[in-house]
């Protein structure tokens, strides 16, 4: 039985570290049947990505390989695999948990630094230009309401949100 309140990361294996995370709880239910891989729209197009393989590496404690490779970033979050998993492993959410760990360790494609930065600055991940805002009137759309950026930033702080780092050479 796993203990969900284990705190000392150095004393536990990687799979336990994952199961303690939001979204990572179901990892150890995976019995490697491959239903996920055969349901995946990406796996058939890109040999770098195979959800079953990611779960296997996480179960075997291959932390560095999971966190520093390309694979975890290639999931489209379509939830096909999670929908079909006979063990109710929350695969798409497990990939979010793995990405959360990777970002805390400073590994992520540069686009996440853009998303994180925009969220903190504007409370939105896609900026709305003054031009577009002015255009609304022309279309007969009501003016946009203010965004709760201040509250949002307090929530980010209270939940330990780390803005992903921008690296010089893009992946």
């Amino acid at each position: 039985m796993l203990h969900h309140n284990v705190k000392k990361a150095e004393a536990i294996s990687f799979s336990e570290e994952v199961t303690c995370r939001h979204g990572g709880e179901t990892l150890t239910a995976c019995y490697q049947c491959g239903t996920c891989a055969s349901s995946c729209p990406v796996a058939r197009l890109d040999s770098r990505f195979n959800p079953r393989e990611i779960l296997k590496l996480a179960l075997l404690g291959e932390k560095d390989e999971v966190l520093s490779g390309d694979a975890i970033w290639l999931c489209t979050s379509c939830f096909n695999c999670q929908e079909r998993c006979p063990q109710n492993v929350e695969i798409a959410e497990l990939i979010f948990a793995l990405r959360n760990i990777a970002i805390e360790a400073g590994n992520s494609p540069n686009i996440y630094a853009d998303f994180g930065g925009a969220l903190i600055a504007d409370g939105r991940i896609v900026a709305i230009s003054k031009f577009v805002e002015k255009k609304r009137e022309e279309f007969g759309l009501p003016p946009l309401k203010p965004v709760g950026v201040e509250d949002l930033n307090k929530i980010l702080e209270a939940t330990g949100f780390t803005k992903p780092e921008q690296k010089e050479a893009s992946k």
Partner: peptide, 19 residues
């Protein structure tokens, strides 16, 4: 309504699920 923010979809869930 006033103050709606980003919904925090997959790209933000990838950074921090709890946030």
């Amino acid at each position: 309504l006033d103050n709606f923010t980003c919904c925090c979809p997959a790209p933000i869930q990838s950074i921090n699920l709890e946030s």
